[in-house]
Design a binder for these strands. Structure first.
Lengths: 163, 163
DNA sequence: CTTATATCAGGTACACTGATATTC
DNA sequence: CGAATATCAGTGAACCTGATATAA
């Protein structure tokens, strides 16, 4: 969320080098930090944290998913997901019900309140995302997209057949 | 850190759209998540967290900086920085001494052990960073760098006179 | 008196490990 | 039996707000 209480006389750091010459990892981190800060500020008035928004988004894409699968998708432990789900349930945004096939597992879904909350959040997130591509030519956007996708693909991706 | 305990039958999510067509913010988040995960895995054997590494890096760039300025640079509250500094001091990586001009403020520096730790960390971080640009043509790298810098610049940057 | 600095106290959401009961 | 699921307990680093003492 960040506080920035007043001005400082110290210039922004950059692990030695700065600007377009800086370490690419530092630039990536800096850029994402700014984006995340904007996201958190957009979500805060609605009372949702970023991990919570992330889980609600996944639940919207995979209604009825079990907690263990949610953990795998998020690359988190089942225990961590359990905590987040508990907080979301306390807030009334999700519903847990019996799993149709596995009696130990749970069927987790968005509640109507959760669906509405997610819709409101997405609206705000949409605005924040638009800032990312302001004034970027289509050709450059294409290059950036390919770079990001390649990065994300190198590590993650269980995959098999969609649907 | 992430745990990924076994395979899943569920394809990776993407807020509806996927791959190069996905939301740019989602792609940015995904890409950074992968990079951060690699960084944490590289730092973990040395016993340092990412925020701790970040603070050590800043201390290396601005030896003798005060906690309040450190907080402003990191966009964190002085209280948060205080906690991180306490942990770093307990580990013996930093040294606090009297400030030459402001008697209430503290002069925070890397200890020899902290300098060595930072050096070892940087070595590992360097390797992780190289992955980010593997197989990226110089022209595309230039586009990506400009995009990242523009993003980081739009929000941050206090600035005035160095020194 | 006002501001800046550091820190104490308390709280919360996330992250982990480990242990346990249940189900397949 | 082993493997997967959910959840209990405890721990810890990072974030916050609010209060406090000191110094400029």
């Amino acid at each position: 969320m960040s506080k920035r209480q007043s001005e400082t006389h110290i210039p922004a750091v950059g692990e030695g080098k700065r600007g377009v010459e800086g370490h690419i990892g530092y630039l990536l981190r800096q850029a994402y930090a700014v984006h995340r800060s904007r996201l958190e500020q957009a979500l805060q008035p609605l009372g949702l944290t970023l991990p919570q928004f992330s889980v609600l988004t996944m639940l919207s894409a995979y209604p009825g998913i079990a907690g263990a699968d949610l953990a795998r998708l998020s690359l988190l432990t089942p225990q961590t997901i359990c905590v987040i789900l508990n907080n979301l349930e306390k807030a009334g945004f999700i519903r847990r019900s019996a799993h149709p096939v596995h009696r130990r597992a749970q069927c987790i879904e968005l509640s109507p309140a959760g669906l509405l909350m997610l819709k409101n959040c997405k609206q705000r997130v949409e605005l924040v995302e638009q800032i990312l591509l302001q004034g970027v030519p289509a050709k450059e956007e294409e290059v950036v997209r390919r770079w990001l996708v390649q990065l994300a693909m190198t590590d993650a991706m269980p995959m098999s057949e969609p649907r």
